[in-house]
Design a protein around this nucleic acid. Structure first.
Lengths: 155, 155
DNA sequence: GATGTGTGGTTGCATCATAAAACCATATGG
DNA sequence: CCATATGGTTTTATGATGCAACCACACATC
């Protein structure tokens, strides 16, 4: 994508997130990692992506602290890629993407999987946003405020 | 990015979402639209992006049913871009991205804004995932299930 | 110990989306 | 009637992407 206009220094947290995981593969790699994949070859065969692209993405994800390389695990002297807490912290993002697709996709019948409550096997509810005191909030109930004690440019 | 490996036909809802909004600009445009921007020039000056890219993104977002073009509004014979319900439905995604950045960013002090409860002006809580019966769920409490009555390949 | 095979990459190379700037077309203001 | 602002499209270059081929290492086999 040329230049990439890296959002790294941007003051908007959304832009900052996109800078780390805002490309077409990173989130899919994270999805598979959450699913339990760890090895280069596993990612490669599951996602069907070019190996060089995968190598570049894995390196980038490691650089961003989303994945970490573990020495081995099954004996073979290669490395594995495991999610860090930061990586596991993307779970709500993936859920939000999934739910948006489930709700608004033009062909929802093509969606192969549903996310369910493990205990009951029933679909989970939509993500909820709550105030500090517990009130359920809609988008209209929220607003952006400048961060106290900071003079960076606004977003 | 060449080929783009369009995920449009993929059975994974995350991939399908990414196909629509998984690039570096779309979500930022949506963010500004949620903030109230409507005009080409507003987006352009606020985001500082090249005009041709903006034009292409806006067209793509309209094609995906995320934005719609409104004839005018302030008299000038140009069009405006307004969010559709599908577009407004991305709100949780943006909140998830924001919260991920707030929690895990290496330089959180650079983040300029916080999302607050409009009524109290206090930061909102993290997005919550609930089961149908209301139980709060952690990622480990969930699992993927194949969609009933469908024989598409799994994700 | 030479040979094969599978894993885990790196290295070219062609392509095509991106970005930046110039250009254009249609209002609007003086 | 000219200047300027708005809303784009065209032109050009760049460089990330995708593909295939190549390489290195480990382990197993002959």
């Amino acid at each position: 994508m040329v230049k990439r206009t890296s959002f790294e220094g941007d003051a908007c947290p959304i832009a900052r997130s996109l800078d780390a995981i805002g490309d077409w593969w990173s989130l899919l790699i994270i999805r598979e990692a959450l699913f339990g994949l760890r090895r280069f070859g596993e990612f490669q065969s599951k996602l069907g992506m070019a190996k060089n692209i995968l190598a570049a993405r894995l390196r980038s994800l490691v650089d961003h602290g989303i994945l970490a390389t573990a020495p081995a695990s099954d004996g073979s002297a290669y490395q594995e890629y495991v999610l860090t807490p930061k990586g596991r912290g993307t779970f709500p993002i993936l859920v939000a993407l999934r739910q948006w697709s489930e709700e608004f996709d033009d062909h929802p019948e093509e969606i192969a999987t549903i996310l369910v409550d493990r205990e009951r096997g029933r679909p989970i509810k939509k993500l909820e946003m709550h105030a500090e005191d517990g009130r359920l909030l809609s988008p209209a109930d929220t607003m952006l405020k400048p961060r106290p004690a900071s003079r960076r440019r606004s977003a």
